[in-house]
Amino acid sequence: MERIEVDQVVMGLILNAGNAKQHIYQALKCVKEGTLAKSEEEIRLAEEALTEAHNIQTSFLVKEANGQASEITALFIHAQDHLMTTITEINLIKEIIEMRKEFKNLLKIGEIEND
Rank of each mutant, 00 (worst) to 15 (best):
F76P: 03
H23Q: 15
F76W: 06
E33D: 15
L61H: 04
V31C: 05
F103S: 00
H54M: 10
G110R: 00
E89F: 07
D115W: 00
A46I: 00
F103C: 04
M99P: 03
I112K: 05
E42Y: 07
F103N: 06
L75C: 07
D81T: 10
N55E: 12
N19W: 07
N55Q: 12
L61T: 06
K108A: 12
T88A: 15
N105Y: 07
I24N: 03
I4K: 14
A37F: 07
N91L: 07
I112W: 02
A46C: 05
E41S: 06
L83A: 04
Q68Y: 08
T85R: 07
M11Y: 13
F76R: 04
V9A: 14
L13Y: 02
L15Q: 10
E89Q: 11
E47W: 01
I77V: 15
Q68K: 09
V9T: 11
E47G: 13
E42D: 10
L75F: 15
E95H: 06
T51F: 08
L13N: 01
E47L: 08
D81P: 01
S59M: 10
T85H: 05
K101E: 06
I4N: 11
D115R: 01
E113C: 06
E40R: 07
A27R: 03
N105G: 05
K21C: 12
T51P: 02
K32S: 09
A37K: 13
L28W: 06
T35L: 10
E2Y: 11
K32H: 11
Y25I: 10
I87P: 04
I87D: 03
L50A: 04
T58G: 07
I56V: 10
L107F: 02
E89V: 15
L45G: 01
L13T: 04
K94D: 01
I14E: 06
D7M: 15
L50T: 00
E47C: 04
A37N: 14
I96F: 11
E33V: 11
E113N: 14
L83D: 01
M84E: 05
E33M: 13
Q22M: 10
K21M: 12
K108H: 08
E48K: 15
G110S: 08
G67V: 03
Q22Y: 09
R44C: 07
E52I: 13
M99N: 10
T73I: 05
A17R: 00
K63S: 05
I96S: 01
E98K: 12
L83P: 02
E40A: 08
K29L: 14
E41P: 06
E102R: 13
G34V: 11
Q80S: 03
E5A: 14
T73P: 03
E42R: 01
G18C: 01
K29M: 03
G18M: 10
S39C: 12
M99C: 09
V6M: 13
M11W: 08
E52C: 12
E113A: 12
A79I: 03
L61R: 02
Q8A: 15
I93D: 02
G12K: 03
H78E: 04
I112P: 03
A69Y: 05
N55Y: 04
V31T: 11
R100P: 01
I96R: 00
I112L: 04
K38P: 04
T86R: 06
L106M: 15
K63P: 02
D115I: 00
A65S: 14
I56R: 00
N19L: 11
M1D: 08
Q26N: 15
